[in-house]
Structure formats: C-alpha cells, structure tokens
Write a protein that binds this DNA or RNA. Structure first.
Lengths: 118, 118
DNA sequence: TTCGGAGTTGCAGAAATCTTCAACTGGCTC
DNA sequence: GAGCCAGTTGAAGATTTCTGCAACTCCGAA
C-alpha cells in the first residue's frame, strides 16, 4: 500500500471528531433513522447536519437511501458501535485517572509542582 | 458534568486524528518507549513530534516520565489498543465495501445520490 | 402543474489545527 | 562551570475545518 496507512486511519478518527457526528452515530446505533429524526434530536441547522452527514458518508461510515419522501441513514457496519464503545471506555478511564489523581494530589501535597503534564 | 459528553468524546477522537499521533500510539502498544525511538521511526522533526506528544498527553491518552537522560512515553490505559483495533476493523470493512461492492451498490439503489469521493 | 416539505449543495467569513523556526530547560560528562 | 544531548515550548504563517445563508433538487399532494 503506497499511500500511508496511518493517513487513512487518522482520517477515519478525524471523521469521528465532531460532536454532531458523534451524536449521529450514537443515534444510528439503534438502527436506521430518517434525517427528520436526527434533526429533531440534535439541535443544529438542517444544512449543518447535512454537511456532517456528508462527511460521514464520504468516509464510508454511514450509508443513506431514500424511503419515499424521506432520506434514511444507517451505520455502514456494526463495527462502528464497537469503536464508540471502546471510546467510551477510554474516556471513562482517563477521566477517572484525572479526577482520582487530582484529589490525591490535593490531599497529599497541596503546594507541589505539577509533574510532566502541562 | 455539565460540559456535553459528546464534546468530550469528539475531542478524544479528534486527538487520534493525526498520522503521527496514530503512529506513536501503535508503537506504544508494545510498551513504553523513549522519545528517541519514536523519533527514529517516525520521520518527523523533533519539535513536531514533541507537539504531537503534548497533544496526546493533554488528552490523557499517554503519560510520560523521565528515565535518566531520556523521556519515556506509555499508553495511559490498555483500552487505547482496543480502540486502535476497532478502528482497523472498520477501515477494513469500509475499504472492502468500497472496492468490492461499489458497482453493486450503484446498480441497486438508483435513487441514492452517488457516494462520490471528496 | 404548481406548491410545500425534506434535504442537499456552494460559498464565504470565522475558528481551529498544523508545521516550522528559534529559543529554552534539564540532565550528564568533562 | 562549560558544553552537549534530549526534549519542550512559544509564536507565526499556511492550511484545514466549521457554520450559516441562500439557492437548489427531488418527491408527493392538491
């Protein structure tokens, strides 16, 4: 593969790096949904949502199809749900570490210089 | 936690959305490594690598500590490896779909807008 | 065929991110 | 201490991404 694989991986993660897109994916975990529904739940302008959906579509993470007058969206693969779950776990671990460490530090050495974290 | 959770999740994914940062994390999957090693394998300027490491550090995804004259980096939680693995699976699924089923999809759903690249 | 609802697209200004350079800190050895 | 090696930080210009507006397409109903 001549085009760096790291580039493709990074692009995939970057695609997920937007609050609206994350919300869309979480809503789609339960099955296909029309844009109407997404729009009703996400509090963003229609054009903006459409832009974000286009980003997800281009990346191949979701697919769209028409159902009568509505446009439906769905996850292109259930693996996406796994990714979101893994993300949740990391977030939990990181926040726990941060909060736990912070409390510990405050209790033990109130005036201590912070270690190697900015 | 008053700050929207979707924001935090999006930030976490965005943090991974950079080729150098992805490479760093993949290298750290095998255990802690000094910056020297990373620098030797990633072909990027020292200051740039340092910037990317700082991004990962701020996000709490990696931790750093000194070992004599060297600075070592390590994953802050093994969950990160799970996330990378899930990402690989999705990338595989998406690329397979694109290469293998594109023609079929185009023929089967004529009402759908063609999923053009970028 | 005309109308209105459902989405999409193009565009431009605003905001965030990336990269590089130069200057800096911290530790080790002489 | 002087000099060096390892790594970090700050800043600025270039690039990318985001958002909202207006205009557009497509479909179903009247």
């Amino acid at each position: 593969m001549s085009v760096p694989l790291y580039q493709a991986k990074a692009e995939m993660f970057r695609t997920l790096g937007h609050p609206v897109r994350i919300r869309v994916l979480e809503l789609l975990q339960d099955g296909p949904r029309p844009v109407r529904d997404l729009l009703a739940e996400i509090d963003v302008e229609a054009s903006n949502l459409s832009q974000q959906l286009a980003v997800l579509r281009r990346a191949g993470i979701v697919t769209s199809f028409r159902d009568g007058a509505l446009v439906m969206y769905a996850l292109s693969t259930p693996d996406v749900a796994d990714l979101l779950a893994a993300g949740r776990r990391i977030l939990g671990a990181v926040l726990t570490d941060r909060d736990g460490l912070l409390v510990e530090l405050r209790a033990a050495t109130p005036a201590m210089r912070r270690p190697t974290r900015s």
